[in-house]
């Protein structure tokens, strides 16, 4: 049974709080009252994973073999190799699994497959590897169906709920990119108003709100609205929503306390578009369907363009400042 504290701690790691030290000890655990013939389910030692699994297995009687994935979830760890062939073999040996169960079968989550060479595990440990369903909630049905999974159970989705829970970990790590506009705008306003006073501070604050908008386009709205935004490229999706925001910015620039000057407006628009494009591209790292080759292609093309656009944007603001001071 998951306690209120478990739920709260699981919520916190979604925001990056204590995320990198959120583990359970590797080893063999019992769910319910398993016997020698009970199935063995393998999982990672990230506590969020472990809690999700034991919540879905309530009422079952089986063994849970927890691998040392250094506190990382199954799929990421499999990609890295820590939910891996050697760790699985070692953990089977360390827990003396062959003395605990009379059978020689283990069930690993399907998403552990990238890290586990099942034939090597069998050769080394004597245990035959079966692939369980993608989602823990399908395990009871999988077990009841003679260890058969439907196509749906073997497919990874990326629906709204899946996407929205990832947004805090786009927003929080992304905040450091907002420091650049903070400093930039502060310096710009101080120089152009010839003073560090309440006016320049107020103006900087309202200026920044336009950047918060671009930031949220890239870190929140692209993930949430992903299937409905045109283009397959994440960077282009970011550019698309970023352009909509740029339109708002252009028409309501006085709300954000920007002067009616083309150098200022276009300079800031280049920066706003850079932010939403880059942060949207970053979301590929958390998505469940983007390939390495695809993200590489996007990155190689987009990052130099974003850097160039940012430099051009800053250049326009500098040009304005120089002409204004003269």
């Amino acid at each position: 049974m998951l306690t209120a504290k478990d739920h709260f701690d699981n919520f916190k790691v979604r925001w990056g709080i204590n995320r990198y030290n959120y583990t359970v000890s590797p080893g063999l655990y019992a769910v319910g009252d398993p016997k020698q013939d009970s199935p063995v389910i393998v999982t990672a030692n990230y506590k969020l994973t472990f809690d999700l699994l034991r919540k879905e297995l309530a009422g079952q009687n089986l063994w849970v073999l927890v691998l040392n994935t250094k506190g990382i979830n199954v799929w990421c760890a499999a990609g890295k190799g820590t939910f891996g062939t050697n760790e699985l073999i070692n953990r089977i040996n360390k827990t003396k699994l062959e003395h605990v169960v009379s059978h020689r079968k283990i069930i690993i989550p399907q998403l552990g497959a990238p890290g586990v060479a099942s034939q090597k595990v069998t050769k080394s440990s004597g245990f035959k590897v079966s692939f369980g369903p993608v989602r823990a909630k399908d395990i009871p049905e999988f077990l009841a169906n003679g260890w058969n999974a439907s196509n749906e159970m073997r497919t990874v989705s990326f629906d709204l709920k899946d996407r929205i829970v990832l947004t805090p970990m786009e927003i929080i790590p992304g905040l450091k990119f907002l420091l650049i506009p903070v400093i930039l705008l502060l310096v710009f306003n101080i120089i152009n108003h010839r003073g560090f006073d309440l006016n320049s501070l107020t103006e900087t604050f309202f200026n920044l709100l336009s950047y918060v908008g671009a930031f949220l386009m890239g870190t929140f709205f692209v993930p949430v609205l992903l299937p409905y935004i045109p283009f397959r490229s994440f960077a282009l999706k970011g550019l698309f929503l970023g352009s909509l925001w740029a339109l708002v910015f252009f028409n309501f620039h006085s709300v954000f306390m920007f002067a009616d000057n083309h150098l200022i407006l276009i300079g800031n628009i280049l920066l706003l578009l850079s932010i939403s494009t880059y942060l949207a591209l970053n979301f590929t790292g958390s998505s469940t369907y983007t390939s390495f080759s695809g993200t590489l292609r996007e990155t190689i093309i987009v990052v130099p363009l974003v850097v160039a656009a940012s430099i051009a944007g800053i250049g326009l603001l500098v040009a304005y400042t120089i002409s204004n001071l003269g």
Binding site: G79, Q110, A113, P114, V116, S291
Partner: peptide
């Protein structure tokens, strides 16, 4: 085009008939 290069197939093919560059995961 639906392949995300996770590498699960290549890792588990018993006769190495499948290859893919799976990167860092």
């Amino acid at each position: 085009d639906s392949c995300m290069e996770c590498g699960a197939c290549a890792q588990n093919c018993p006769i190495n008939a499948v290859t893919v560059r799976s990167g860092v995961g």
